[in-house]
Design a binder for these strands. Structure first.
Lengths: 192, 192
DNA sequence: AATATAACTGATTAATCAGTCAGTATAGTT
DNA sequence: AACTATACTGACTGATTAATCAGTTATATT
């Protein structure tokens, strides 16, 4: 792995676990056994480093979901919906840094004044909502899911699942302990 | 209003809109027409100021919900559930600073090492979950809500509503535009 | 009016941090 | 070997920041 990739990885972890302002370029440098000037050689500013981090997280998320749906095939829309929820929770555990980063406020603040940031965030959330929506559309077509507003319900399901992950990341409640009830709620929402 | 209250109010707004690290004591001082040393006279440190802010937010939230349920009476648990959801959304708009503060990561980070902080957050979230739970219990008793795990479903409903508010605060999606679908989803979850 | 307590402030300090720059090491090409 | 481009670094700077403290002003109390 190149030094630049090293820096990106370390920065992802530090921005996710400590926050943007709370992470110093010196910390990133120390973690990668580099001089702090090296970071500025590869990334023109701290903000630019953050944008690269967010972009790589975006790529990672899209790739992970893409792989999952390449391998897995579902016979009904409801099955796909439940599978997506499960995979979302799995990913939130397996790639905790990504979701920690997305559950901080900084990215959304930066998005207000930076279009690259805005675009990365939109790509990420569209990826999520699109998949939930697709499951709902398929489910309505095959009769496994009842009549409801597809896009908006997709958003609400994302809101529920993501809210649970946030609760877990904030040490408020354990997402795992709620898994069965979450699936039960999803089935009630999808009920015909 | 006393200067100390002035400072608390200004700090609430600044911590909520800009974050803890991103807010300087000088800013708080400027906003309240005081010298920065005055802030340190009333609050022994920046962290102590934050703890006071969080505690006052806790008091505010508990008082607001207490008032609402004093005035409003519900004939069924389902009505109470819908009323609570509506009031939560109303409050998130009317006291946006409170929810912005709670949607930042800093409070939960501080809670890891500070028990006062932990306690305030627990009080706030217990207040939310308790009310949703009470509505579910009542609804099951009066037959307006189906059989489900009360505490865990209460948590999931909070997760959905709070997730929506967070999406709005992050400028991702508009909570208002989802109101009708949210109520529809709540009814599906509560269905007998 | 005298005294005491609380509220407030200007000036300062020590530390931290993003970013710069002049220069060195490394690797690839001819 | 000479040349070039890329990768990397140590030393520095200017700005910002939380916190301190000695001292001043305002408010009550006697």
């Amino acid at each position: 792995m190149s030094k630049k990739e090293d820096i990106l990885k370390a920065a992802t972890l530090l921005f996710a676990t400590n926050g943007f302002k709370e992470t110093s370029m010196t910390e990133v440098a120390t973690m990668t056994n580099a001089a702090s000037a090296t970071i500025f050689y590869h990334f023109k500013s701290k903000e630019a480093l953050f944008l690269s981090v967010l972009n790589s997280v975006k790529d990672g998320i899209i790739e992970e979901f893409s792989h999952y749906f390449d391998e897995k095939k579902f016979s009904t829309g409801l099955e796909m919906l439940e599978g997506t929820v499960s995979f979302y929770l799995y990913l939130a555990g397996n790639k905790a840094e990504w979701f920690l980063l997305l559950h901080r406020y900084y990215p959304y603040e930066l998005a207000k004044k930076n279009n690259t940031c805005r675009q990365s965030l939109e790509d990420i959330y569209n990826c999520f909502v699109d998949i939930f929506e697709k499951a709902l559309v398929q489910g309505q077509a095959d009769g496994s899911i009842g009549k409801l507003s597809q896009r908006k319900t997709a958003l609400l399901i994302l809101s529920t699942v993501d809210g649970m992950v946030r609760f877990k990341n904030c040490n408020l409640y354990d997402a795992g302990a709620l898994y069965n009830e979450l699936i039960a709620v999803i089935r009630r929402i999808a009920a015909t």
